[in-house]
């Protein structure tokens, strides 16, 4: 199978039953995608498959053959962060940080659809991403801050 991971083609033949999560973490070394429950409940493993937020613990790697997968590592990095990542730091929207990559990927999918989401739209789009530290208010603020930053930079 061939899939595009963070913009790069990856040829592989993982076991037929291997979840996308395991493929990304173990075969690709992309451990930014977290295993929080491994049963489709917590959202920590959220990645984008052809732009759609997807629970990678429930998706089969082979099921993504020919598709494009984006993980947190593909969103931005420490030395070149995405506006969302910058906004999360500015708003202190990561406490323990374990759910953060999943929250960010769900938010990235939202901002690709809606450039100025309301608070309610952010909450709705991210409500499948659990956080136990109680960072929710700051996550919602951060997503809206990032949306604002992206609109400003698009306008300039």
């Amino acid at each position: 199978m061939r899939l595009i991971v963070n913009g790069r083609p990856v040829d592989a033949d993982p076991p037929g039953h291997q979840p996308l999560l395991d493929f990304l973490r173990d075969a690709c070394g992309l451990t930014g995608t977290k295993r929080g429950c491994d049963r489709g409940e917590c959202g920590a493993c959220t990645v984008l498959v052809d732009g759609e937020p997807t629970l990678s613990c429930l998706a089969l790697a082979h099921g993504c053959d020919g598709q494009s997968v984006q993980t947190i590592e593909g969103l931005g990095d420490v030395d070149a962060p995405h506006a969302l990542q910058e906004a999360f730091v500015a708003e202190d929207a990561a406490q323990c940080g374990f759910c953060t990559p999943g929250q960010l990927m769900a938010a990235a999918a939202l901002l690709a659809r809606v450039d100025d989401p309301t608070e309610a739209e952010v909450r709705s789009a991210l409500s499948g991403n659990l956080c136990r530290c109680g960072t929710h208010p700051k996550i919602v603020r951060a997503v809206r801050r990032a949306a604002q930053a992206i609109r400003s930079s698009d306008a300039s």
Binding site: T71, L84, Q85, V89, D92
Partner: peptide, 15 residues
């Protein structure tokens, strides 16, 4: 700002 904030948001914090 949290000094390890970018590490966490970039998915690079070593859990």
């Amino acid at each position: 700002r949290r000094v390890d904030g970018l590490l966490k948001t970039a998915g690079r914090a070593p859990y």
